[in-house]
Amino acid sequence: MTDIRTQSNAMEMIALSSAAEKNRLRNVRFRNIGIGFAGFLTLILVWKLSVNLLSVPSYILPAPEQVVVALWSGIAVPVSSPLGWYLPLWSTMSNALAGFLIGALLGLFFGSLMAEFRAVETALMPYAFALQSLPKVAIAPLIVIWCGFGDGSKIAMAALLAFFPMMVNTFAGMRAAEVERIELMKVLSASRLETYRLVKLPSAAPYIFAGLDMGIVYALLGTIVAEFLGAQEGMGVAITKAQAVTDVAGVFAALVVLGITGILLHLIVRRVERSLIHWADRGKR
């Protein structure tokens, strides 16, 4: 009788403590959201107050509400309107994604090749380092000469910027593959391709995803830089057009659109990563 009572007590305590833990986690989440929101409000407030109190002219720094108006004027239009964000954003996004895909695949390919063959590593490493240390946006004018003012140079620029983080991370990730796992494949007389596909590539996956995460943002950057150099459409063009008439609120609004786009792309990569490599960081437990 006492046995049953203590047991049910224990069960109750377990239930209570797990409920308390859930509660605590929810509170932490609410608190974090609260802190984020408070920080954002403070930023807007300081912005608004400094613009008003220091009477900053709106061609230097527009007030927050002016940015909101500019942002909204681009949203509250038909999708096909030349005044909206939709067309330039679509242009920029499609070019950035195309470039990202090309750059990421090439990065994966060359990174794998360098990790797999010492000779390729020795041959390519100096150039990789040289190009890596070069500020790649400086190549943009050259690319515009080669690929013209159309989508070609934007895609090329995006691919170029997405390529390096992917190549470097693929290389590092594959080299970090655990020796024991490679020896396992050796004991099983696995072919080089089998070892690559079943051990080295999955081992490198966390690195590769970090590369993708960087690459997608860089691809966006590359596209915008190419657009600055005299393209006909895209977010970069929207920014230079607003700049030409000192519509600073318009520039800010475009930056907000790009910022949100970048965050969304980052979140998509993270989401895919979490569902694909759910085993990462837990493999050794």
Binding site: R181, E183, V199, I277
Partner: peptide, 13 residues
């Protein structure tokens, strides 16, 4: 020949 290593060495993926 089958080999068992010091660690289980299972592929986590």
């Amino acid at each position: 020949v089958g080999v068992v290593f010091q660690q289980a060495n299972l592929l986590p993926w």
